[in-house]
Computed example of a mutant assay.
Amino acid sequence: MSDAHRRPKKPQQVRRKLLAAAADLCAVEGPAALTLDAVSKAVGVSKGGLLHHFPGRDALIDALFEDLVGRFDTAIEAAIAADPVAEGRFTRAYVACSLDLGLSAEGEGWRGLTAAILGVPSLRARWHDWVAAKAERFGATDGAPRHQLARFAADGVWLADLLGSHDLDAATRAAIRVELAALAAPAPPASGTRP
């Protein structure tokens, strides 16, 4: 019996490695480089092993999208849960998570996924649906133009991080974060009214 048959199977670890390799290939070489052969070679599994987890390239890209967006969503929900002030809470969470993402290990995965989103209409539609669902859910607390402006600015920092187009030192990044969070702070009461 060969060693391959004696090795313990760890399907979740293999799946994670396959997704990480797919993200790395997209980030470094672009979505066109994402082939089943390249991913299976990068992880050291057979093409059949990869197909066990993902029946094709599209399924692999879809799983990468679900994985990264799911983790981003989880981070946002955690930030929302830790923020006691309802007005602007989603925007503050979105800003914080977006600015943190460019510096995290997941940032590389997002670099590749963003390239795929730009080139794959179905992924653009799914990202649009995610954004639309958040806009609907948080419209009452985060629908003001200043909230939208803060999220658009966070998207700009995120894109700059993904492209590597700007070198933001830690102090500048922290200052941007403070300014964007201020846009999402509750509006002061209108003059002439009592708090």
Rank of each mutant, 00 (worst) to 15 (best):
L103A: 13
G139C: 03
W127L: 15
G48L: 05
R92G: 07
R177K: 14
G109C: 03
H5M: 04
A82E: 15
L180W: 02
G88I: 02
G139P: 08
D73W: 05
A82F: 06
G56N: 14
P145K: 00
P31D: 11
A150L: 01
G70Q: 07
S122Q: 13
A190Q: 14
C26W: 01
R124C: 11
A33Y: 08
H166Y: 12
Q12G: 03
A115E: 10
V43L: 02
P195D: 11
L118Y: 08
H52A: 11
H166W: 09
G88W: 00
I176H: 09
S165D: 13
G56F: 07
A96H: 04
G44S: 12
R89L: 00
S191F: 09
H53Y: 09
D161K: 03
T114K: 01
V131F: 08
L123Q: 03
G143R: 08
D24K: 13
G192A: 06
A96P: 00
P188N: 09
H5I: 00
A105W: 05
A78M: 04
G102T: 02
G143S: 04
F65P: 06
L68S: 05
E87M: 09
P84Y: 01
L50I: 04
E66Q: 14
D83A: 04
R194P: 04
P195Q: 09
A185S: 15
L51R: 10
D169K: 02
A190W: 07
R111V: 09
P55M: 00
V85M: 02
E77R: 13
V28R: 15
A171H: 08
Y94S: 11
L118D: 09
V69H: 03
P121A: 05
